[in-house]
Design a protein around this nucleic acid. Structure first.
Lengths: 129, 129
DNA sequence: TTATATATTGCAACTTTGTTGCATTCAGTG
DNA sequence: CACTGAATGCAACAAAGTTGCAATATATAA
């Protein structure tokens, strides 16, 4: 796991949110995390912790088809942060999952500088199909 | 161009918004469209017209990396509505453009039912690079 | 263990974005 | 011209996200 650069401190809210995301097989939204925390901390704190974890490359941000932000852990990421896999967003149960093994192949014009990618396929997940 | 199914009516706001999107080389957000209209109609009307135009397959919806919705015309779409091209989202000038010629290739597990796709690559556009 | 510096939090207030209900207005038809 | 209902504006609301600041808690040194 990549290490903190700054003097980050270990708090109950931080470790709990980190655990929630790491233990989840699907990506979680801010609202979902907040309710799972059961009042452990404030709404604003969740925003700030998620922001930190993204910055630290411990979790990554996914936008589902409804425009809702979801967060998932970066287990599959090696040294380099790799996000060029596909995310699947179920239209029925709203779950979002990383399909880490599937990397789309495409050719960008050289005039563009690529920094990040967000590939989302939406439809029905195996459970809802 | 695909035709309206319902008894839609031609209003100033509708034609103006349609023209704005059609004439723009980049995708526009609700906020951008609203300010370009210069008070021609209400905020809510813009939402409703955009919703209609998407439903009519005249424009399509893109989610940029910041989670902001953008709208672009469907010029490149043939009979069938095709959205499996890449969208580029510039981190600096925030512009979003459809790269209609670039279709990523990938293989999904058969257990998933695919209904729509959203491929966004972010970084620096040719002008900002 | 205690003291200290500062990272983190909670709260309040605010902005932005999007939605809904309803009375009014306006486009299209006979 | 009159009529029907689609479209609009307005107000009120809800959800999502941000910011400033005082209070609190964590890591480190003493």
């Amino acid at each position: 796991m990549l290490h903190s650069v700054k003097n980050y401190r270990d708090t109950k809210a931080l470790s709990e949110i980190r655990k929630l995301i790491q233990d989840s097989s699907i990506a979680l939204s801010h609202a979902e995390i907040l309710s799972m925390l059961n009042g452990l901390c404030d709404r604003v704190t969740v925003y700030r912790i998620l922001e930190r974890l993204v910055k630290e490359n411990i979790i990554h941000k996914i936008i589902n088809v409804d425009g809702v932000l979801k967060f998932a852990s970066c287990n599959q990421c090696k040294q380099e942060h790799e996000h060029n896999h596909i995310h699947f967003s179920c239209e029925k149960c709203k779950m979002v999952v990383c399909l880490n093994d599937i990397s789309p192949v495409f050719q960008m014009p050289t005039s563009y500088v690529i920094k990040q990618m967000n590939f989302t396929v939406a439809g029905l997940c195996p459970a809802c199909a």
